[in-house]
Design a protein around this nucleic acid. Sequence first.
DNA 1: GCGTAACCGAGACGGTACGTCGGGTCTTCCG
DNA 2: CGGAAGACCCGACGTACCGTCTCGGTTACGC
Lengths: 212, 212, 212, 212
Amino acid sequence: MTTTPADDIDETARRSIGARRNPASQEAILDAAEAILNEEGIAGFSIEAVARRARAGKPTIYRWWPNRTTLMLDVYKRFKITREFPDTGTLRGDLIAFLENQLLGFWKDRLCGTVYRAVIAEAQHDPDAAAALFAYQAERKKVALDMVDRAKARGEVDEAVNGELIIDMIVSFAWHQLLLDRVDEAIKVIDGVVDGVLMGCAGYQREDLGVV
Amino acid sequence: MTTTPADDIDETARRSIGARRNPASQEAILDAAEAILNEEGIAGFSIEAVARRARAGKPTIYRWWPNRTTLMLDVYKRFKITREFPDTGTLRGDLIAFLENQLLGFWKDRLCGTVYRAVIAEAQHDPDAAAALFAYQAERKKVALDMVDRAKARGEVDEAVNGELIIDMIVSFAWHQLLLDRVDEAIKVIDGVVDGVLMGCAGYQREDLGVV
Amino acid sequence: MTTTPADDIDETARRSIGARRNPASQEAILDAAEAILNEEGIAGFSIEAVARRARAGKPTIYRWWPNRTTLMLDVYKRFKITREFPDTGTLRGDLIAFLENQLLGFWKDRLCGTVYRAVIAEAQHDPDAAAALFAYQAERKKVALDMVDRAKARGEVDEAVNGELIIDMIVSFAWHQLLLDRVDEAIKVIDGVVDGVLMGCAGYQREDLGVV
Amino acid sequence: MTTTPADDIDETARRSIGARRNPASQEAILDAAEAILNEEGIAGFSIEAVARRARAGKPTIYRWWPNRTTLMLDVYKRFKITREFPDTGTLRGDLIAFLENQLLGFWKDRLCGTVYRAVIAEAQHDPDAAAALFAYQAERKKVALDMVDRAKARGEVDEAVNGELIIDMIVSFAWHQLLLDRVDEAIKVIDGVVDGVLMGCAGYQREDLGVV
DNA sequence: GCGTAACCGAGACGGTACGTCGGGTCTTCCG
DNA sequence: CGGAAGACCCGACGTACCGTCTCGGTTACGC
């Protein structure tokens, strides 16, 4: 009875490991969530589905993640670790690398892009999700700001330049393309976008309208 | 008895008006949808709720709007009609007016902003919604492109300038701020954004890196 | 073009023929109803389906048949005409023929059986249908009673015999088998049933319990 | 806070009692179903209505009863339990008691008869319902067959007698009368029906037609 | 070394909303 | 006026998830 190893797959079912969080369960849940987002997209993502796939109880999920947004964010953060901000020596190169590595290029991996889209969508009707997303991207932007500060230090751009705005324009463009599911096309025009942000459009002079 | 307008709502129950769309029903449905979005926000918005409030049958709604996104888009379009693209005489003025009237300034009205945020969110997991939104905003961008074309005709900018990109940058910025619920703050920096798009950042010269 | 009668059914769409009932429409509706019952069974039978198939408007159906039961009964009556009561010379032969021709044998044709089953089912929650069915089968039973009366005249059975009961038993058996969808099996045991009704079960004597 | 008993009606709301069937819910659902059938008849009987009345979720009903027929059958079975097959000592007495207690006499109670009629009607267009009904009545008939077997053991009837047919005739008669809403009249002639089944009709001899 | 607290899986619970189907009524337009 | 067409409101269908709850079982910790 106790020795029927063949037909009993559940033999390896996770159990409680005492009065503390079971890392195996958490990992299995995150794995399942990631797999579902990967295979079925945002639409197929539900707590039920994650629990089913992870062979976990729903309360176990709700115990550690109050809502699906936080769960998605955790999935996103898990594979966000690696990429780094390189220092190419020029602001233009840095911004291009920013778009290519951190934003569009990162989201080009369907899974990453899908998850981030889901988080953004979720944030539109869930204040908690909005707060989490806001905090996350604010922190990312702050790091990105270093690129502009380095350029200022090199004398590449005026001290008066609004660095936040430049970063915002780059990030805005990337978000927009992501949300319209045009990441692949957007990657091809990264250079033009960065040039536009840095130099404006040909024919326009800073003095034309008496702007400082 | 027959003239108790106050407590007898059913008196005015809409009936079929023959084998054609009943404008009264459509209006009632759009009214209900708008009211729900206004009072309860995106979270409370469901076809069921709209049908209940509009005293309409669900099939009547599904007959004319295949999904809730198209319904939300119609609500959005209904109060979008009024606003017009002014011709201020300069591209800079046009773009500022674009942001002030069509985008941020329009979304500043909480309801309008809420609806559009909902539509964008919906489009992230519903292909139909994505298609509807894509079509809508592509058409809007096409109209907006006239602003750049006018500027080209005036010789204000080079013929070679990528008009689509300029519009994209403006719209991207507006979306980004909307989705982060920062419309009010964004309105204050509209001038700076337009200047950035048109002239880049001070200190940067088109020849710096040998770009054409 | 105008003379392709074979493959263009829509061309011949029926129109009003003035302020009177259009026989073509009625026939088309009955045909459609019969076809649906034949192909999809009772479950697929709905006014909507009939109207669709007959290319008729729902109101046209409701104008002439107040409910689906009357429509089904009309379908049933349409092919009920033919079969006759034969006179085989013995009550046993008559009853066997009754079951074989009028009841089970008739219902063996899936369509006929299906329709009658539907009518009986409908009568269980529709008083109008019940009345129609009751009248119909009462009249059929009255005709069937002639078989017993002929046997009495021949001296085959006592004058005191309850003819109505004999007919009822035969009909009851047939209904029961029809409603349990066992018509085919029932046909094989017709002889035994008739014998049972006429002679009871072996070993039992009328005097056994002092019954008259 | 936790002790506001006055304004909290839901206090008595049934909850899950763990990963197993909640008897209170099942009972409440059957009670509601019975009440609806009693008060509004078959026409008013729907899963939605039962759920509403029982304060239960629709999925809870569908979890345990795949369709409305099985639910109706359960309602039927609930008050069917009590009645027992008596052993009167003679087959005639047993069959009379069978009709008087189990069939016609039982259905005389309007509610019981209504439910069973509804089940039979449902079975005419729902294969699942048909299967459920078929299984139920087959099992009932098997139990009833004991009556004939006892008679055989007593030497009251020949071993060769087809017991199934006898039971079938009795049940058929009862069904027929039930479906024609003539239960009250039928009860008056129970004796004659049983005698007919056991002894056939006067004047007919087993040898008349050379039948064994 | 033994109770107990917190975890685990499982899954039922009351609900809400989904998108579809059919019912029966109504109106318009055409012949 | 008859008949088609089809929209209207209504309500039920059966399904998917929601977030909560209780269960039985399993450690690990503290008394």
